[in-house]
Amino acid sequence: MRMIRRIRTISYHLAAILVSSVSVIAMIWVISASLRQPGLPPPPVIEWIPNPISWSNYQRAFELIPLGQYLLNSLLVIGMAIPLTLVTASWAGFAMAQFTQGTQNRLILLAIILLMIPVTSLWLARFVLFSRLGWIDTIWAIIAPAMMGSSPLFILLFYWTFRRIPKELYESAVLDGAMAIQIWRVIAMPLAKPTIVTVMVLTFILYWSDFISPLLYIKSTEKYTLSVGLQMLQQLDRSNWPLLMAASVVMITPIVLLFGLIQRYFWSEKGIFNNL
């Protein structure tokens, strides 16, 4: 029996390692390609570790386009979008959790419908709208969705969290004469820390990856975010694979590091997705 169990454990891990490697293999190839010395003829056979290892592609990527500037722009967008998202999404979730059951159900339905709306269908009309509002070529056009909590999913996450907080907590505070905002700030939010972290990370990912908004609405090259910058680099030198892969790694790394920081928590029993 012990023998069989051990074999099962080993084969489980072997299979899991295989699955994991297939999943990340593209990334390994990319890192390897990004370290290849520029100007060498392309390798005739697969090359896992380039020889010699060269960091100059990273340097060149920052020289060829203002990648540093774009990185800052992306961070600025995120720096504005995260607090806005947290406030609007948690307010909406907080309010939702305290309405009558009927209203709650209607609002859940609304959120689900909103999740189902194809974003591509909104590009054009938003472009027309933003150009009338004078938002074209401003950061507002990119962070506009943060006004509505960035994604209906975030509203639902907060709603689910706040609904689990015992009603008596709110009610006694209301009897003490506390304002809704105070209850939100003093009671609700401190109890929602896991949700806050999750929404922050997801918001980060959302705006870090956003390609379409800056592509459509940002005009000045110095206001580009990393996504558009990367696309620009591709157009400048489309066959320079080591260079393009280096720039891609620059874009991926922060997000992977960030996820690495929270991954333990993300998969834990208390993780947000296990409590839906």
Partner: peptide
């Protein structure tokens, strides 16, 4: 400076449209 021609065209069109 816009590297690609098709983006350049889209860009000029959008700029005219936005009156800028």
């Amino acid at each position: 400076h816009i590297p690609s021609q098709s983006d350049y065209r889209a860009r000029i069109g959008a700029d005219f449209a936005a009156n800028t």
